[in-house]
Write a protein that binds this DNA or RNA. Structure first.
Lengths: 239, 239
DNA sequence: CGTGAATTTGACCGCCATCAAAAACAGTGG
DNA sequence: CCACTGTTTTTGATGGCGGTCAAATTCACG
């Protein structure tokens, strides 16, 4: 049940059997959310953190004019709000973009981990640091990439992250977001997201239909995106 | 010497005398950098982290076409690359935007802290989580705010962050970035940054000259920015 | 087959990039 | 103190990317 989390952590460092057991032992009740439900709502102070076992979720923030910006995408195996643990008050919400299967962890148990399991603490810390690295990459994409490159970059990133948790199938992966939702990821209008996607399709870099993305030419996609996977830290090293 | 760091940490939680001493004891040699020098370069694997004692620094990434995006601004009291500690390889660089006074901390000493000082560990973790929260706010600003609101938001954020480390003077603060550098923060052209700034000036929200920003009307600036300081976590709570 | 959602196309227009150059400013040496 | 030079800020003109509005088409599903 925590397999995707373990796959995630093990893409960065060795996780011992003892650490694995410790993680299992702190998982509280499971719960399922359907599309559109908030896993965590803005402004709340949850006393627990949420592990996404399976599904797709998005961090989002609404503006006063009703527009929305998605600031992160969470995949199977992601701790969606380890953040809330020392951060206390949620400054944004997290919503299910597909049916989501989650498990909860009490903050008290996380505090306990920092007290007795320093290496595991560093691994969880690392997980939040990679979130930060992804955020920076998104900032770069929004500020200095063309929209086409931004989208291409996102596809590259999603592919590698999904591959870690074995959610890819050859060169393709299931991806449940609508184009309207993707527009909120890229900070675009729906119309222009559509035109950007069509540009990628026309160049023969990807297909994207039935909520399935298929990468036709990894090398050219990578080039179009100026994609460098360093920030994902996909190498096993002592941390 | 680590006073600004302590001010930073103490804006979130109580820091005991023992923790304070521990922090002092792990600070290695100090160093000064002049404007334009890299505190940390992209692609390197430093064995230490850098505490910014005084000055302004920026995380940046260059694109192949030579354009640059600044993904974060670091102020006095910020740990500029606690990230590199479990992250290992720097996926971006950090450059001095003003003369910078820094001190170094060995990664081995940071590992030691995770082993013997859980609360201090959580405080340092928190620090990196707030970096992440700021990143998310920047993503929102780039994706869904007008450029004027984005700039206003940044001014609000800088003011509060500088106030914590006592680098404000009434409603104004010293800020050494040129307009060209600010353009790299907002993902704008120099010309348009200038026009955006003039819009804020014309509305009587700020003055900005001689590298000094003065906030003329906090409330209206806040409104123009849709600024909500929650993400900065400026409240003292047990973490 | 009908209804609502999602995708796609087209027209129009404004924000912002680019190019160019003027004006203001800062630091230099004479 | 002033001329000289490079940097920074500011202004103006032009064009393209991407937003908004509107509608057609395709798709999902009861």
């Amino acid at each position: 049940m925590i397999e995707p989390l373990l796959l995630n952590l093990r893409s960065h460092d060795v996780v011992t059997r003892e650490e694995e057991d410790r993680l299992r032992s702190i998982l509280q009740r499971e719960q399922r959310f359907s599309v559109g439900e908030d896993l965590v709502s803005q402004g709340t102070r949850p006393g627990y953190s949420t592990l996404l076992i399976d599904g797709f979720a998005a961090r989002y923030k609404y503006m006063e004019d009703g527009s929305r910006q998605i600031t992160a995408l969470n995949l199977s195996g992601d701790f969606v709000d380890l953040h809330a643990f020392p951060l206390k008050t949620m400054d944004h919400g997290i919503v299910a973009m597909s049916p989501c299967h989650v498990a909860f962890v009490d903050h008290a148990d996380l505090v306990r981990i920092t007290e007795v399991a320093p290496h595991l603490t560093r691994l969880l810390w690392l997980d939040t640091l990679i979130d930060g690295a992804i955020h920076r990459e998104w900032i770069v994409a929004m500020g200095r990439r063309t929209k086409k490159a931004h989208l291409a970059h996102l596809v590259c990133e999603l592919f590698l992250r999904l591959q870690v948790v074995r959610r890819t199938d050859g060169n393709s992966f299931h991806f449940p977001l609508s184009q309207a939702e993707m527009a909120d990821v890229l900070g675009l209008s729906i119309v222009h997201f559509n035109k950007t996607l069509q540009a990628l399709r026309k160049e023969g870099l990807v297909t994207w239909e039935n909520r399935t993305v298929n990468i036709l030419d990894w090398q050219r996609l990578k080039d179009a995106a100026e994609f460098d996977p360093t920030y994902l830290n996909l190498s096993v090293e002592p941390r």
